[in-house]
């Protein structure tokens, strides 16, 4: 899903670059609140984790495979601002050191995957968390729904960009249907993996999951005495 050079015209690429720079600037301010002076090493290691997670391919069907985008996953695990930074840095490293994703499309890729992916993912997750009962078991399903919706949302924004600055004379409606349809399938895989990963971290180290903190705060310490039934 990395957009290559030449897919969108130059003005659109520059405009999304400006949007991406503004979004990353906001995230830089916010990440200090989430992690204080730990930001650089923690975000660096989480970015490396997201990169490693993206290396794991899962079969989507029809012989193709998708890989984790990780926007919703990172947002739930480390918080939205740090997640935007992590995904942006992953895309920067992939563009500069791995030739994956065009350099002029870097702004587009950051806007789609880091900004839209994380903002939609976190928005859906925060909404569900506010509505659902505060139980640790519900963090992972909420993250799954967030992942499921964030991927087609990024695809829909891509289609909008394509309608504005696309270089291919294809009917926008057809692109929208194909992109969103295809990404619902990818989003389903993303949702399953996100749910399982968040579930496994919540089970072992719930204190590490940023999205689970309000749930943990609502927990009461329970002291049970042996032989005494409550």
């Amino acid at each position: 899903m990395h957009v290559p050079d030449g897919f969108l015209d130059a003005p659109t690429s520059v405009a999304t670059g400006v949007v991406a720079a503004a979004g990353v600037a906001v995230a830089l301010r916010g990440a200090h609140r989430e992690l204080d002076d730990k930001t650089a090493p923690m975000a660096g290691l989480v970015a490396t984790f997201v990169f490693a997670g993206q290396m794991m391919n899962f079969p989507v069907g029809a012989g193709t495979s998708g890989h984790l985008l990780g926007g919703a996953l990172a947002a739930v695990l480390v918080g939205p601002f740090t997640a935007v930074l992590c995904i942006s840095v992953v895309l920067l490293v992939q563009a500069l050191l791995m030739a994956d994703g065009g350099i002029t499309a870097l702004g587009t890729n950051i806007t789609l995957m880091a900004l839209v992916g994380v903002v939609v993912g976190w928005g859906v997750f925060a909404l569900l968390r506010a509505v659902l009962p505060k139980r640790a078991a519900l963090v992972a399903p909420a993250a799954a729904v967030a992942a499921l919706l964030s991927v087609p949302a990024a695809a829909a924004v891509f289609t909008a960009l394509f309608a504005i600055g696309g270089t291919v004379p294809v009917d926008t409606g057809a692109v929208l249907a194909a992109m969103v349809g295809w990404h619902v399938v990818i989003g389903t895989g993303e949702a399953v993996i996100t749910c399982l990963v968040v579930g496994s971290v919540v089970a072992v180290r719930p204190d590490l999951v940023y999205g689970a903190r309000p749930v943990l705060a609502a927990r009461r310490l329970e002291i049970r005495r042996p032989g005494v039934t409550a």
Partner: peptide
């Protein structure tokens, strides 16, 4: 996938603790 995801979860914890 459940096994895979648990190992990704473990990888996250290892990376975070390394950080």
């Amino acid at each position: 996938w459940p096994t895979l995801a648990r190992s990704l979860g473990a990888l996250f914890i290892r990376s975070y603790e390394r950080g």
